[in-house]
Write a protein that binds this DNA or RNA. Structure first.
Length: 372
RNA sequence: GCGAGUUUGGUGAAGUGGUUAACACGGCGGAUUGUGGUCCCGUUAUGCGUGGGUUCGAUUCCCACAUCUCGCC
């Protein structure tokens, strides 16, 4: 499916303001996608997501394959119907990241990856064809090609073999997609911290007819400078007229830095995971709501925030909920954290339009890194 | 009033005549980047009811007092 991506404005250093279309409407980039691994953005309803200005979410092939199974979702009429998310598109991840994150005894071959299910220990084989078949049944709007996300660090030789195999998997993933008319498909660039491999991966993947291109294998434990280089090495060789998606990155400053290097969309578990552990994102950095200093604090998490949480609840109350392990507290902070990131993306778009994004970055970083 | 037993941090509790008094919970702080929601890391009693005594040395042994529990009058 053609996403009709348009770059509306590009800065001299490569930050882009754009938009793309799905049957759900027109979507502005740069944008941030909250993660709903198991057909739910943890603790939140679709209405709450919409109110937090999240208009696209990510869900996960691997998890839904294991439970409840793609046929169950298909039987319900697809993921949107199954989870009652009918306000925007869904992108499904391919399962390749689990090769890295589950890090169990794994067996990667040309055919695919052998996993042991984390639910019952059963041995499973995930291949490019299987990943695409599952995503076809899930009925997401954007599907991801199957890739390998190697750990960090890894030798140049290992990475070279991995990148070449990921490219072959990308071709097989493309061939396997039976629903190209209704489901857009992205390829994934790998290559670790190696410039030659990132370049090769970006150029070769770009030759394939994808609707967008992802930069994967970032934020896997590398230092901050290496992280930025990984992105630059890839985006330098990606087509300018297609969406670029930086996978798994969600620290506020990283989002700005990604946009500056030409990234259009991001996803990350950070806002919801931090929320479940009592951490709120604010302009002045992260705030651990558990801290005793908030015990009698009757102000909202952020005074000028327009989210449901900040308009209605105090830090004193939210702290009590988190300390008492009440899920409503996790939900309230999740709402705020997602709104914080969608608002950040709105600000980023505004400053690309004004062409002062670099100045905005300096101002943002100076406040965000200053611990109150 | 008499007899027996009890007394270790915020809580539940281990423990020993000899350097820094287990462990758990709680508290305080941290961590968290394509999510195995309940996970992880650090820290938290200069003191073992009070006062004496024995001993080179006592939270550990002895005495008195206090405390709470049980039994008897």
């Amino acid at each position: 499916m053609d996403l009709k991506f348009k770059v509306l404005k590009e800065t001299s250093y490569g930050a882009r303001l754009g938009e793309f279309k799905t049957k759900w409407g027109t979507h502005k980039t740069p944008m941030f996608m909250p993660v709903g691994t198991q057909a739910t953005v943890k603790t939140l309803s679709p209405e709450e997501l919409k109110d937090a200005h999240a208009d696209i979410i990510l869900s996960n092939t691997y998890h839904l394959w294991l439970r409840p199974g793609e046929d169950i979702v298909d039987n319900a009429g697809g993921l949107h119907e199954f989870m009652n998310y009918k306000t925007g598109p869904i992108l499904t991840d391919c399962g390749g990241f689990q090769v890295f994150s589950l890090a169990k005894p794994k067996d990667i071959s040309e055919e695919g990856v052998k996993f042991k299910s984390h639910l019952d220990g059963k041995e499973l084989l995930l291949t490019p064809e299987k990943s695409i078949e599952i995503q076809n049944k899930l009925g997401s709007d954007i599907i991801m090609s199957f890739d390998e996300c190697p750990p960090y660090p890894v030798t140049h030789e290992y990475m070279k073999n991995s990148v070449e195999r990921t490219l072959r998997w990308a071709k097989r993933s493309l061939d396997a997609n039976k629903k190209r008319e209704t489901q857009a498909q992205f390829g994934i660039v790998q290559g670790g911290e190696f410039e030659d491999l990132r370049k090769w991966s970006a150029i070769e993947t770009s030759k394939l007819d994808f609707d967008g291109y992802s930069v994967g294998g970032v934020s896997v434990g590398e230092d901050p400078i290496t992280k930025l280089k990984m992105i630059e090495y890839a985006t330098a060789y990606l087509p300018k007229d297609k969406i670029r998606y930086l996978m798994g990155v969600g620290e506020p400053v990283d989002l700005i830095d990604g946009v500056i290097r030409g990234i259009d969309i991001f996803d990350c578990v950070l806002p919801t995971r931090l929320a479940r552990h009592g951490n709120a994102l604010t302009r002045n950095g992260r705030t651990n709501i558990r801290n005793a200093k908030f015990i009698k604090d009757l102000t909202p998490i952020e005074e000028d925030c327009d989210c449901y949480t900040c308009k209605n609840y105090t830090k004193s109350y939210i702290r009590h909920l988190i300390v008492s392990d009440e899920s409503f507290g996790q939900r309230l902070i999740s709402i705020h954290n997602i709104r914080f990131l969608t608002k950040l993306m709105e600000d980023i778009r505004y400053h690309i339009e004004k062409d002062d994004l670099l100045e905005f970055r300096e101002e943002f970083v100076s406040k965000y890194n200053k611990k109150q």
